[in-house]
């Protein structure tokens, strides 16, 4: 039981990183990135290609150390975020959404079709795990990984808090709320947006690298659009514009996703499993609609920011 909870917590924390990255882009900057899974995939594959143990039929699989893979994954996603941002960032709202969505679909297709590098649909295995050889049981490794995740997520969370309270973060919010006013004050909206986009994408890339180094296997089927949807649902349910909400949303949505499966298994006999599974998905959909109906700003909404000079 504990072992499962540790595993579950690792997944939730990885998803939280994704949600935090998206929160920076959407919650604080207002960029509708519907291609979350694309950046996740770039991070994951960069790490996998660099750290997987060598195999003659693949171009990559360099067997490099775990840390190199993680850092390179972040660098590669930052670069990709910058390139994609350069082209798409001036698009607004739904247009940016569909453009980034298309980018994510294209990235997934590249991972599926570029077989010599990505292994195609066969995927890549034996991906670098951090200090895995020190642990004899999967529980030991998962526990260590959970500790690692807590440190990484904690650091990210703390750094994001700092950054958002800094002048840079305040400009982001200003642009989101009233672009004209911010531009009038001499801030380049485009530059700040692009920076937020790149930073958010980098976090998604980090999440991707951590996910594959936790699981040890990657294939294109890990990066279908449903993942983007799940991350968005986490942010919306938790409450966008609030990093605590982003983490809570990851816990609640993934908890419902996994927990409803357990509930259906307990309540429905195997002979009715197909119907039970359909009902499970219907329940997930209903819950999402209900949360939005009754808490349209998420479980934790954005904290109101009031100038401390307001009562002067």
């Amino acid at each position: 039981m504990i072992s499962y909870l540790v595993f579950f917590a690792c997944i939730v924390l990885i998803l939280s990183l994704l949600t935090l990255g998206l929160n920076l882009q959407w919650g604080f900057t207002g960029l509708f990135n519907a291609g979350v899974v694309g950046f996740y995939a770039i991070g994951a594959y960069t790490h996998a290609i660099l750290t997987a143990s060598p195999q003659p039929q693949y171009l990559g699989n360099f067997g490099l150390p775990w840390l190199v893979g993680v850092l390179a994954a972040m660098a590669a996603t930052a670069l990709a975020g910058w390139l994609i941002g350069l082209v798409t960032i001036r698009l607004r709202g739904d247009y940016l959404a569909i453009a980034t969505f298309g980018v994510a679909v294209s990235i997934q297709l590249v991972t599926l079709n570029w077989e010599p590098l990505t292994g195609g649909s066969q995927g890549l295995t034996r991906i670098g795990k951090p200090f895995a050889q020190l642990f004899e049981t999967p529980f030991g490794f998962n526990l260590w990984f959970l500790g690692l995740m807590i440190v990484i997520l904690g650091t990210t969370y703390w750094a994001l808090d700092r950054v958002l309270l800094s002048p840079w973060g305040r400009v982001l919010k200003a642009i989101r709320e009233d672009e004209t006013a911010a531009v009038a004050l001499g801030k380049s909206a485009r530059r700040f947006r692009l920076e937020a986009f790149v930073l958010g994408s980098t976090l998604m890339g980090l999440a991707g690298a951590l996910y594959v180094s936790f699981i040890g296997f990657v294939s294109p089927f890990d990066f279908l659009p449903i993942v983007t949807f799940q991350v968005w649902a986490m942010l919306i349910v938790g409450g966008s514009g609030n990093n605590r909400g982003a983490v809570l949303g990851a816990l609640v949505v993934w908890g419902i996703w996994a927990g409803s499966g357990v509930a259906v298994t307990k309540l429905v006999p195997p002979s009715r499993a197909a119907q039970g599974a359909a009902i499970q998905v219907i329940l997930i959909g209903l819950l999402l609609v209900l949360v939005l109906l009754f808490r349209p700003r998420g479980l934790i909404g954005e904290a109101a920011v009031v100038s401390r000079h307001v009562n002067d």
């Binding site: 959407w26 219907i282 959909g285 209903l286 999402l288 609609v289 939005l292």
Partner: peptide, 17 residues
């Protein structure tokens, strides 16, 4: 609008299943 989008996602899951 984004809340509507996700409500639509939820509704789609229900309708499809």
């Amino acid at each position: 609008p984004l809340t509507m989008v996700f409500a639509a996602f939820g509704a789609a899951l229900v309708m499809r299943h």
